[in-house]
């Protein structure tokens, strides 16, 4: 049998943030790149995001945030992944972030932050270079 690994990505919007156009476009770009994208929709708690990521066995979580609560929500997601022994899952973020928060988020383990205006090709390439499907 021919083994074929496919990258699986969870696209999630944690918190009370109602803007999902951006995350839908990203999900679509990932699909067009040949990835399997699990989409969870709006208003997710970090706990729900992490449980979904584990049940779906994804290689990466893309967190979308446009409402300014990222300094609480993103670290919480990382913390829960660790608690569940799932911190091998790559986490990155997209949306609107004050410049001074970006290094802080990267320091605690968010692998990359994408801000408005990033070309879709760049977002896809980043995944291809930095996310390896589980071996």
């Amino acid at each position: 049998m021919n083994q074929k690994r496919k990258i699986r990505i969870l696209v999630a919007k944690p918190g009370l943030d109602g803007h999902d156009r951006g995350s839908r476009i990203i999900a679509r770009a990932y699909r067009d790149a040949g990835f399997e994208v699990v989409y969870t929709g709006l208003h997710q708690t970090p706990e729900e995001v992490v449980q979904a990521a584990i049940q779906e066995d994804v290689d990466m979580i893309g967190l979308s945030s446009l409402a300014g609560a990222h300094m609480y929500l993103f670290p919480r997601v990382l913390e829960l992944l660790k608690e569940n022994g799932a911190d091998d899952i790559v986490v990155c973020g997209g949306g609107i972030f004050p410049e001074e928060d970006i290094p802080k988020l990267k320091k605690i383990g968010i692998k990359e932050i994408f801000t408005p205006g990033t070309p879709l090709g760049e977002v896809v390439n980043w995944v291809e270079e930095n996310v390896k499907p589980r071996s």
Binding site: R31, D32, G34, Y39, E48
Partner: peptide, 20 residues
């Protein structure tokens, strides 16, 4: 998708309340 081989799996959106 028959073109890219990718997929958007969105059924979970409706069932997420059971994820915990």
């Amino acid at each position: 998708s028959p073109f890219s081989g990718g997929a958007i799996l969105g059924d979970r959106v409706r069932m997420q309340r059971h994820s915990m």
